[in-house]
Amino acid sequence: MSTTTLTTWSLEMTSPTDLVPSVGVPGPEIRIVRSEVPSPEFSRFLYTAVGGDIHWTDRLGLTRAQWAQLLGRPGVETWVIYDRGTPAGYVELDPQPDGVVEIIYFGLVPEFRGRRIGGHLLTVGIEKAWSLAERWPELSPTRRVWLHTCSLDGPAAMPNYVRRGFKVFREETEPYEPTPTPGSWPGA
């Protein structure tokens, strides 16, 4: 395989007033619900369903115990968007020291992309990141929300982040050797 270039952008918000909510709220068939019981199986399903075609591989080798440990930390939250009862995507929040919250995962299952629900899910995810300490009093109040995206993500990812009010604070480029994507069914 030939080597190509991978660009990774880190983006941030430093105030809840930076958020520019998506326009329009989807109809009643769309719901966003917090997955309150940490479930490695459900989280792994979401991870592979959303990221399988865009090279999300960093968690594929984790054991069930490692997934449980990651999900069981105070303040880690998974918010799932449903379309008529079917999981369509998710946002996972990861609290870090000193009031920093990373949107560590965000995305839609391929069949639900392009339906104008990603902006709504991201808006809710950002709002939940800013209010995380209200649900987890042991955490410091949120003072910064950040995420990263890369040139392997879908073409709507970066424009969605910028429209919601995120600002790029770092850009890194490195050589990358593409490999086949694992898809939603790794090993199948």
Rank of each mutant, 00 (worst) to 15 (best):
S2W: 13
S2T: 09
S2H: 14
T4K: 15
T4P: 00
L6E: 04
T8P: 00
W9P: 00
S10R: 13
S10F: 04
E12M: 12
T14Y: 12
T14R: 15
P16V: 05
T17N: 11
V25Y: 04
P26W: 12
G27P: 02
E29P: 01
S35W: 03
E36P: 00
V37D: 14
V37T: 14
V37F: 08
F45S: 13
F45D: 10
A49G: 01
V50R: 08
V50L: 06
G52S: 09
I54K: 09
H55C: 10
W56T: 01
T57Q: 15
D58W: 10
D58K: 15
R59Y: 05
G61W: 11
T63I: 02
R64K: 15
R64V: 04
Q66K: 15
A68Y: 07
G75Y: 02
Y82A: 07
D83G: 04
P87V: 05
L93V: 02
D94Q: 15
D94P: 01
D94C: 14
Q96S: 03
P97T: 09
P97Y: 11
V100A: 15
V100N: 10
V100S: 11
I104T: 13
Y105M: 05
R113Q: 13
G118P: 03
L122D: 00
I126V: 08
L132P: 00
L132A: 05
R135Q: 08
L139R: 10
S140P: 00
P141N: 10
P141W: 09
R144A: 04
T149G: 02
C150G: 06
S151R: 15
G154Q: 09
P155W: 12
R163C: 04
V168W: 03
V168Y: 04
V168D: 00
F169L: 11
E171M: 14
E177R: 15
A188V: 02
